[in-house]
Structure formats: C-alpha cells, structure tokens
Design a protein around this nucleic acid. Structure first.
Length: 571
DNA sequence: GCCGTTTTCGGCCCGACTGTTTTCAGTCG
C-alpha cells in the first residue's frame, strides 16, 4: 500500500474519530500522521520493516502499529471497526456549512439521523429546535446549508471562483476607504477546487467598506456581519468572506487568512519555540508587536524565506524556507510553447492555421497539434488520409513562417489492453505522440496502472496525457497507482502531462510534487479545443507552482531547438 | 495520540462569530 493510500486511511480514521466524539488531540494526531506519511521522502515499507517508523516525529507506538498494519496487510482493523459503526451519510453531512463533527454526533445520537436526506426531513419536522445546543436559527441555517450542498456540492472550480473574486476585488477597489485589498484563502493558494472566496481589505472606515460590499451587484445576501468580517452569498451561489482591518494589521491578517490552516498551525508552533506569538493581528514578543510592512518581512522575522501562498500547505515548505531551499517556481514567461492542441481536423472549434496564429501572438515559439486518433470516433479522430492532409498543411505553414514552428503530434487513444491507435509506421510518422485514455473508464486501480504502463512502454509514446482521467467535481478518474506510473515514466523516458484544462488539472499538485521529487519530466499543456482555451495554460502554471515545479522540471520551457532535438531522438 | 535541555503527566495554535446560553460550545479558517 503506497503512502498516499496510507495517508488517506489515517485521515479518514481522524474524521471518523471526530464524528464519534473523540478527544480532539487524538484526532489531530491521526491527521498529523497522515501528513507526515504523505510528505515523507523515505520508503515507507523500509521504515516499517526496520522498525524505524517509530522514530519519525509525530508517530508513536499506536500510529506506528497502525501504519505497519496498513503497509503489511493493506487494511486497518480499527478503521474498519469505525466504518462499521458509522453510517456513510454522516461523512457527507460534514459538507453542510455550519455542521461539524460535534453537532453531527448529537444529531445522530439524539435524533437517529444518518444522512443529509434524513437531516433535511428532521428540519422540516422541526425536530432540531428541541435539541440541546440547537435552536430555530441553527435549524434554518442547516436547511440553507443543505440547499447549497445540493446545488453545488458546496464546491467550485478554481477558475469559476477566481472569476467572481476578481470582479469583486475590482469593484471594491473603487471604494475610497479601501487602502489595500487582496485575495486570500484557498483561491490565493491555487487550490483546484474551492469552497468559498476569501478577501482581505485594509481601511480605517470598516462600516463604509461593509456598506460598499453589501451593495455590490454580485452580492445576493449578507449571511453574517461582525466588526471585522462580513459573509455573503453571491448571485452564483458561492460564499464570500470579507475581512476588514486597520492598514497596519494588513500583512498579518493577509497571512492568517491565506492559510492553510495546517501551515498556520505549524508556523505558530515554530514561532512559539522562538518566543513569538502569532495571531491574525500581529507577531508578538511579550506585549509588543513586531511591526512588518508586508508578508516578506513577516516570514523574515521568523527566520524564513518568503513562502509563496501556493506552497503554504504544510508540505515541507516551512523547513525548506528555514534552510533556504524553496524552489524557484515556474512562471508563465518560462513557457516557450504548448504541445496539446485540437483543431477542426478533429473536435476543435478553430482551424489549425488560426490556432497557430493565436499561439504565436501569445509569444510562443512553437506548438504541437495533437488531434484525436482514429478510434476516438466521437471526436472525429483522424483517418490516415486526414493525417496526410494535415502533414501537408503543417509543412506549408512551417515553410511560410521562420519564426514559429508547428509540430505534428497526435493524441492517441490508449485501448483497454494498453495498446495505441494506428500501426507502428503511422505512429512513427508523427513528431511526437500523446497517449491518453478516453474510454473504458471502469478499469481502475491496478488494472488502470497496467494499462497506462503498457502504453508508456510503447516506443512511440512521448507523453502521457491527463494521467488520472479525473474531471474535477465530475468523476474520480481511474485512480492508477501513481508511484508506479511515475517510475514507468522515468524508465521509459515518457513525459507526464499536467493537463491545464480547469476541469482537469491532472496531475494534481500533490502528485506533481511526487513526480518532481522522483525526477520525472512534466509538460504543461492547455488541451485547447479553441483559441480562448490557450489561456488555460495559466491554470497549469498555477497548479504547477503549487506542485513545486521549477522551469527545469517542465519540458515546454525548453527552446525550439532543444524540443526538436528531443523529438528527433528515438527512445 | 504524541511529546519532553524545566516535564513520563499535562499540555497540545489562535481568535472571530453565531446561536445558544446566562457564561459558553461549536464551527471556521
């Protein structure tokens, strides 16, 4: 059982323990251990076999036994016992805003509620108001929360939420009382899916700022309003929290509300050891606040390099910042070309020529056209004749334009048995080949891993497209065992794709970090089906940064001659 | 459940806000 799966089980044990009213420090130990396991560089099986697992900080006798059981048997009996006595609906109920483990525990124990549907019915029957700790107001809020979960699963794509947030920030800037304003929370950290929008403002007239916010066209309803915080639901349904503080407090508040919670917790622990207390209003040494002008100084006071928001997940960034070892993250300017585009030859909306011109306008020096292969009938996959026509058009365009180069690639379907579309001599005729799964999704886990590895072993495979097949908020994907996929990619000289479509962002940021650490090469591709989607590359950059990627990790930061050279070498 | 250059027991990051209470528990980030 690999690290990620072990971590997942430990985390679920933590959540289940919470639901059963366990001591919060005990549950925290499980969450913490999950993180420790997920971010450790050492081989987990070796640590278990040698017994060294007990030496790892955060893992004591009980957790060492649990991890050993998971690694050796693939199961954890205490986990199963907890699952057996927990209706699965209780975990769902955590998605309802305002409901946490304690309240769910009460609802389950006192009312016998086991699912969101039953909870909704209990609310309709007014049964919550008689419960200790509940009342008419909380019952009403729970009904609203359930509505929200049903409508949006309580989650939004990064791109959608960012759009709303940017609109709101632009309009808040027109308020003369706003001295500073910034995105915060999970959006600022580039999480691919977010629950809400957090914005931090500084100004001396909080009332005026609150009024301005309440009157924005995007704000449908104010749901809570205190001295320093206003919450609202926007017209598209997403929750927005606005914090308002004095200008001098801005850096501390911005850091605090950027999170993540785990990053903040770890940072406060470190600060405490150095005699400094951190809260959202300052860095305190005794009674006196250490004044900083921005986040850079904030980190510097703690003896740390500036940690970019997207790295603040307590995934090793704090110790890296202590040792001057933070990555030099990739930026949009590093990208020299993009290598996954569709045109009207298959299921794209714009012609090959139009896509090429648009890409050149964006400053790229090359692109790779990768229409679908013949077995992708639904996407009008290319026949042998189509391939020939396309080759001729590309050759013509290349000879007409010395400043820009078009590679002819193909996005070849990976069949159920791991083989690719087209005979070898056809595959050999392309400049490069992206191998992707578009069918038979029911193959998951070990079978999916085998299928992908077979595809990567094919000598013509240059890249593995959207490696897990996940659709954010849509489907899980085929959940291949990532450690093996990464290993096979390295062994077979295959580049792993970070598909930058805002609906995919596949590989995930945490997988990117694993791949990078293992020494794999990544490529950031927009998978554009029309000109406008060339901009999806930006989302890939965000997620790539979150995955600690540096320019040298990413294939399409290379120059045209380097890419030509790489494609011309057979594997 | 974990941890210890004061500690093997008694701590464990910190504060705002809400809704329920009549001083506080639960949730959230």
């Amino acid at each position: 059982m690999d690290k990620r799966k072990v971590a997942k089980v430990l985390e679920e044990v933590g959540t289940l323990l919470q639901l059963h009213g366990a001591n919060q420090f005990r549950t925290r130990a499980y969450f913490n251990a999950a993180r420790v396991v997920e971010t450790m560089k050492d081989d987990l099986s070796e640590l278990v076999n040698s017994g060294a697992i007990k030496e790892v900080k955060g893992i004591g006798d009980a957790l060492a036994a649990a991890i050993s059981e998971l690694v050796q048997t693939g199961k954890l009996s205490s986990h199963q016992e907890l699952l057996d006595k927990t209706p699965p609906g209780l975990l769902d109920m955590l998605k309802v805003p305002g409901l946490g483990p304690k309240k769910i525990y009460t609802l389950h124990n006192d009312l016998g509620v086991t699912s969101i549907a039953e909870l909704e019915y209990a609310c309709i029957e007014n049964r919550l108001i008689s419960l200790k700790g509940f009342g008419p107001k909380s019952q009403e809020n729970i009904i609203k929360g359930i509505e929200q979960v049903k409508k949006h699963q309580g989650k939004y794509l990064f791109a959608d939420a960012l759009f709303v947030a940017q609109e709101i920030i632009a309009q808040m800037k027109t308020c003369s009382h706003v001295k500073s304003i910034s995105l915060a929370g999970s959006l600022r950290r580039y999480k691919e899916v977010v629950k809400d929008v957090d914005i931090v403002t500084a100004g001396s007239n909080a009332e005026a700022i609150k009024d301005h916010f309440a009157n924005l066209p995007q704000v449908a309803e104010i749901t809570s309003s205190g001295n320093t915080k206003v919450s609202a639901i926007t017209t598209m349904g997403i929750n927005v929290d606005l914090r308002i503080v004095e200008p001098i407090q801005f850096p501390y508040v911005l850091h605090h509300f950027t999170g993540s919670k785990d990053h903040n917790t770890a940072l406060r622990q470190l600060a405490k050891k150095r005699g400094i207390k951190i809260n959202e209003y300052g860095l305190f040494q005794g009674e006196s606040n250490i004044v900083v002008k921005d986040e850079k100084e904030f980190f510097s006071v703690l003896g740390l390099d500036y940690i970019p928001p997207e790295l603040r997940e307590n995934m090793g960034e704090i110790s890296a910042a202590e040792q001057d070892k933070l990555p030099q993250l990739i930026t949009g300017k590093d990208i020299k070309g993009v290598l996954h585009l569709h045109t009207t030859y298959s299921d794209g909306s714009h012609s090959l020529k139009a896509m090429a011109e648009a890409a050149q306008k964006l400053g790229y020096s090359y692109i790779g056209i990768t229409d679908h292969s013949q077995s992708a009938v639904y996407a009008r996959g290319l026949s042998l004749d189509d391939i020939k026509r396309q080759r001729e058009e590309i050759d013509q365009l290349n000879s007409d334009n010395e400043d820009f180069y078009i590679f002819q690639g193909i996005e070849s379907d990976i069949h159920k048995d791991g083989s690719l579309d087209y005979p070898d001599q056809v595959l050999a005729s392309f400049d490069f080949v992206i191998a992707s799964v578009h069918s038979a999704f029911s193959i998951t886990g070990t079978d999916a891993t085998k299928r992908l590895i077979t595809a990567m072993e094919n000598p013509y495979t240059t890249m593995l497209g959207h490696p897990t097949g996940r659709l954010l908020l849509g489907r899980q994907g085929y959940e291949p065992e990532l450690e093996y996929i990464i290993e096979a990619a390295i062994d077979n000289n295959v580049i792993l794709e970070l598909n930058a479509s805002p609906h995919r962002l596949d590989l995930s940021w945490s997988s990117l970090k694993l791949a990078k650490d293992a020494g794999a090469t990544l490529v950031i591709n927009p998978d554009a089906h029309k000109i406008e989607e060339l901009h999806s590359t930006d989302y890939g950059i965000y997620i790539g940064r979150k995955g600690w990627l540096e320019p040298r990790d990413v294939f399409n930061t290379r120059s045209l001659p380097e890419v030509k050279d790489s494609f011309s070498k057979s594997k």
